[in-house]
Design a protein around this nucleic acid. Sequence first.
DNA 1: TTGTATGCGTTATCAG
DNA 2: CTGATAACGCATACAA
Lengths: 345, 345
Amino acid sequence: MTRRPTIRDVAKAAGTSVGSVSRVLNGGPYASSDLHNKVMRAVTKLGYEPDVVAQSMRLKSTKTIACMLADIANPLYAEIVNAAEELLQKEGYVFVLSTTRNDEERELAMVSMVRRRRMDGMIVMASDETRKDVNDALAQANIPMVLIDRGVPAHCDAIFVDHKGAAVDATRYLIGLGHKRIALLLPSENVRPGRERANGYRQALTEAGIPIDPDLIRPQKTSVHFAYTDIEKLLQSPNPPTAIIVLGTRMLAGVMKTVSTRNLRIPEDLSIISVGDTDLTRFASPPITSIRWDLAELGRSAAELLIEQLNGVKRDKPQHISLPTELIIRGSCAKPRATPAKKKA
Amino acid sequence: MTRRPTIRDVAKAAGTSVGSVSRVLNGGPYASSDLHNKVMRAVTKLGYEPDVVAQSMRLKSTKTIACMLADIANPLYAEIVNAAEELLQKEGYVFVLSTTRNDEERELAMVSMVRRRRMDGMIVMASDETRKDVNDALAQANIPMVLIDRGVPAHCDAIFVDHKGAAVDATRYLIGLGHKRIALLLPSENVRPGRERANGYRQALTEAGIPIDPDLIRPQKTSVHFAYTDIEKLLQSPNPPTAIIVLGTRMLAGVMKTVSTRNLRIPEDLSIISVGDTDLTRFASPPITSIRWDLAELGRSAAELLIEQLNGVKRDKPQHISLPTELIIRGSCAKPRATPAKKKA
DNA sequence: TTGTATGCGTTATCAG
DNA sequence: CTGATAACGCATACAA
């Protein structure tokens, strides 16, 4: 077992010099076909593979992109990453996945890693926009980056989803059916999706002249279990909601658990709208009316924007792309019951 | 905007030499506390960060692990990757994600990339065990690797799931309920899970003295749509199955679609067992009896085995770990209907 | 068109 | 304990 051949070995075997080998391999403008042949023969004979680490050292570029997110088991992130990695790979980049589990330390470590490893760029889905240290690190990193669905260091490129419009659509739809007490399940308002959704909800309610009950707005930890207990509490309250808008990725399962535990009928006892167009929303019975957007497009756009930056496309302003959402009407919403049990008491 | 400081800049600023700076930073055994202080002061003053590319060049290790799989949008893979990345990150490795979309070319390119980039190891979920080129490339790569749920180049470490046992359990359970015509939906038999599941199914049937009808064994492309049309065909056949075992990740959605299109009642008209313990299986109505195993454990074990290899733990034999499965009984299975409509005709 | 020599930023060896 | 210097493998400016 001998060591891997270097460019010098190839040069020797081909009876030429390292410079020529390098030129032949990198398609340099000068290459007599004789030399070309000799080099290529030596390359295949020795099984030479260029050392990318050494190339990076010389060229200052590692052709590597890092992607920071909380958790790749989240199907939304998985879908986005899937599309982004696909495109980046096609462009010759290596895709580094770095999960942070919402941990500020790990987010900071990730930014530092990107710098120390001389990675070329990053796609960022930070888990809390209010963390000053992380924002500062990101801002000072001085590395091509694009943010996905995050708002704070707005000096750089970003892809957004129109979560506010989505929340407006959903809320209006329920109002149109006659609902007045509509609960809202949210992820943290420390990230853009949560904030925008809350804003859209409030706007639609205000438009319709319905007072906003803060008790009906429930930010959740992103856990099925947490949503479950919170819904329980909500439905047992004296004046329970007649509809619920589930605007967090994995919260629907919690809601469905409550629904089946309490033997609630959908949509007679409770109307439900959920975010995400998953197997669960499609094949629950009844299927759940839900809000959809193009996750793959989100990932692709992020990759494209990043590649443009990497290719040195200069723009006067940071690019911001906003993706639309769509409300898919299914069977989980109906008019509220005319006479809630309470009334009789 | 000036260039990043190098170790030489630090040495100059600290009034010492590069050697000493390197020693201080890497916790070398020798370091007078005076020099230590001077160096550290210079480091923070300049904002020096060591260049990992140069370190890799010198040290021959990039502290990078690559993971090859078909598609990270597949929730099974996502869960595995999630756990593996977590552990590897903790150990200081960078995690490279490389999707192949079942494409042989990309699998080959991935192996080559791992070599040229001097990555330290790889976690492999190849999409077809019968591809000789890929197997050869893997075998010759001469890089620490661990396979997940794949069998062919068995000379290296691997983590397995007991898919055969799972299929046996599921089939026996249905037989116990009185089913004789049990359909089996499978991924490709070109990968171990497909093969093992088919074997388990056949074994359980044979044990019970039930003849094996090849028409009931349906390998699928891993697409919801494909499963949908195939199930349609199956259920319209003259002698349709009374139960169906869905042993492919995303096939249950296709089955559920058929079920709702044809207004089938579960479990009265059709019993269903599915692989994977997802929101869909949990909250469908009725909830679907399903086969579960610990995906996170799978990912962790793979990472652990790899780390052991990387740490130079030598074993006489390749390590093979097998993970058990569990059949979760829910409401989707019942006795077959006593008198199928056909009988009357 | 080709060969030689330099430097990319580190770590480690080897004198001092 | 510390400083100078030689690799690591490659691409390229420069000389031929």
